[in-house]
Simulated assay, not measured.
Amino acid sequence: MQQPVMSASGNSSFHPDSFFLVGIPGLENSQFWIGFPFCAMYIVAVVGNIIVIHIIRIDHTLHEPVYLFLAMLAFTDLVLSSSTQPKMLAIFWFHSHEIEYHACLIQVFFIHAFSSVESGVLMAMALDRYVAICFPLRHSSILTPSVVGKLGAAVMIRGLLWVSPFCFMISRMPFCANQIIPQSYCEHMAVLKLLCADSRVNRAYGLFVAFSVVGFDIIVISISYVMILRTVLGLPPGEARLKTFGTCASHIGVILAFYIPAMFTFLTHRFGRNVPRVVHIMLANLYLLVPPMLNPIIYGIKTKQIRDRFFQGCCGKCP
């Protein structure tokens, strides 16, 4: 196995040339085989999300808020999964453990910025469901294309602006001689542990970003679904109520698939000293891969318009 590149100085260096990504600590001998299911999931994520984006782009009947938000989610999933999986597979299959310093910081930026964007898109989709179910006659007048565009831009700008200081603050601080990252990718907290300086400000800012972004989005999503539940329970029992529940169930499943592993990873980095490292790292890897893989499958199956358009493109006619 390739040995980590150590700092030339005795104790610390202001700017290391590279870091050494271990992969999955404790499973180094099994990583070659672990790479195959990871690769399969990544291919499904890439192909599925590209298909969703393509169908929504070419079919003008799908240029409605729910589908535009879905296209934003698919694009975000593409970026999020592609920011880690190619390098991760290179580690598993080719022992390419070394990652250049600036490439590591870029990976930190893309992982956290687009995790924030994904959270914001899920919040926007919850708002869309709230307006569609609670104010069906005013849905098109409230969520106009202009409003959808502004929501998408706000979510993107928030992610980029909130996360940019991570990389700036790290780049201004010295690193210790230890340049080994016991993970499969560069993550903010993992890189902070390599600093030879007081990182309390960085950690505090990380907590602020997590709670101001994820906390705010979860509150908005929860309020939206409480209002949706009140409206749905007010409907007479029958097909309309079941259809509405079915529409929301897929979105709730996507929300849980994203937030549960994300919160587990975030809390384990800070407080989970008793959590086995292999469990932590495996869930951290899957958190950036499973939601991007599941989202196009869930929405492709549950959304009739996308499903029909897909079969029409493959078979020349709808089933």
Rank of each mutant, 00 (worst) to 15 (best):
I306P: 00
I34M: 09
Y225W: 10
F271S: 06
L235Q: 01
V131R: 04
N49P: 04
S116P: 03
E64N: 06
N285L: 02
Y259W: 06
L105I: 09
M6V: 11
N178D: 15
P276V: 06
R57Y: 13
I255S: 03
V191P: 00
V201I: 15
S82Q: 02
A197L: 02
L192F: 13
I133W: 07
M156W: 15
K243E: 14
N11A: 15
L233H: 14
T76G: 04
S140Q: 14
K304L: 11
M6I: 10
V213P: 01
I34A: 12
L21A: 04
L235P: 04
K243G: 15
F245N: 15
I56F: 03
F75Q: 08
P236M: 09
A124K: 09
G253V: 00
R158K: 12
C196D: 02
R230T: 05
V213S: 13
I99A: 00
P276L: 02
L21F: 01
G10P: 01
S115P: 03
N178Q: 11
L78R: 01
P237I: 03
Y42M: 05
A126H: 07
L195D: 08
P182N: 09
R129W: 00
N274L: 12
V254A: 14
V191G: 06
A249G: 11
L233W: 12
R200A: 11
I260P: 02
E187D: 15
P16W: 08
A124F: 09
D198M: 06
A113P: 07
E98K: 12
C196R: 10
V209Y: 03
R57H: 09
S18P: 07
F271D: 07
N202E: 14
S224T: 10
S81E: 07
L242Y: 13
E118Q: 12
I181P: 01
T144M: 06
I180A: 09
H280M: 09
Q179C: 05
A240R: 14
M227P: 02
